[in-house]
């Protein structure tokens, strides 16, 4: 049976004149991987901090495990911030021992890569390994809700794949995973997505649902650079794709009006990245 792990109801937060989060309502359930997608500065981290109780909302209501964020609810969360939350001057083993000690569990077992650097200070190991240590620390007490803020930033392709495999395993075991990202290939791995632009929730649903509601015009002009310039001059966002130009969110008629009758045009389903561009422009 799924349970609501975290929810926000019309939550807002400003920093001075900057409205970082604007009336966002969302909820996530156990076993679900919810992707919080947005550009840098869109408000993802602030929304996470609100959900965790690290920021006080100016308006709206936040609940964790059906209660306000408290010390009791925190023991059921595993959190990996963008800054990783590791002590640079402690070793890998000491960091994990501290984290496990706070949660009252045994330190996690290290894989071969991490075992080799167990007695090395965090500041002396590569960023990719640091992220894995932070991830291990967040997972060690088998949290019901795993909150990961840009977990794969600075991690190589293999490391990312490993990390996502572990994220899926956690969700399969019943944990909810809230993950922020601005990589669309990672967003596609989430069960459900919430798109945030300028602090506002602009779309939510599965990746399939989001792309299904947006279309992109693909043009194959004889002179792609000239066509690209014309379309951009007309105020359209254009993505070059080989010999084609993709114009997310534009109508066939508008593209035809700029490029004329000659180049072949077709309307196709948007990719996730294109859908995000359309939503960002609309907001």
């Amino acid at each position: 049976m799924t349970a609501v792990l975290a929810e926000s109801d019309g939550v807002s937060r400003s920093f001075g004149a900057n409205l970082a989060v604007d009336r966002v309502s969302l909820s996530m359930t156990s076993g679900e991987i919810l992707g919080l997608v947005g550009a840098n500065g869109a408000g993802k981290t602030t929304l996470i901090r609100l959900l965790l109780g690290l920021e006080r909302p100016d308006a709206g209501n936040v609940r964790l495990f059906d209660q306000p964020p408290t010390r009791a609810t925190r023991s059921r969360i595993g959190y990996m911030p963008q800054t990783l939350g590791l002590y640079d001057d402690l070793t890998v083993a000491e960091n994990l021992s501290f984290s496990a000690g706070v949660f009252g569990v045994d330190p996690p077992r290290l894989d071969d890569d991490l075992a080799r650097v167990a007695d090395t200070t965090i500041k002396a190991i590569p960023l990719g390994l640091r992220r894995r240590v932070a991830f291990l620390a967040a997972l060690a007490h088998r949290p019901e809700l795993l909150v990961l803020d840009e977990p794969t930033s600075g991690v190589g392709p293999l490391g990312r794949a490993d990390l996502w495999e572990t994220i899926h395993e956690s969700a399969d075991d019943g944990s909810g995973v809230l993950v922020t990202t601005h990589h669309m290939d990672e967003a596609e791995q989430c069960d459900r997505l919430v798109f945030i632009t300028a602090g506002r929730l602009v779309a939510s649903g599965t990746a399939g649902e989001i792309v299904a509601s947006h279309a992109t015009v693909e043009a194959t002009p004889a002179d792609p650079p000239a066509a690209l310039e014309s379309l951009e001059r007309a105020g359209m966002s254009v993505l070059p794709a080989g010999r084609h130009l993709r114009v997310p969110g534009a109508s066939l008629a508008n593209v035809r009006a700029v490029l004329g009758a000659v180049p072949p045009l077709s309307e196709q389903p948007s990719t996730l990245e294109e859908a995000f561009m359309i939503l960002a422009r609309a907001s």
Partner: peptide
């Protein structure tokens, strides 16, 4: 005190 806040 966030639990007592309601939408403005």
């Amino acid at each position: 005190r966030s639990s007592v806040k309601v939408a403005a």
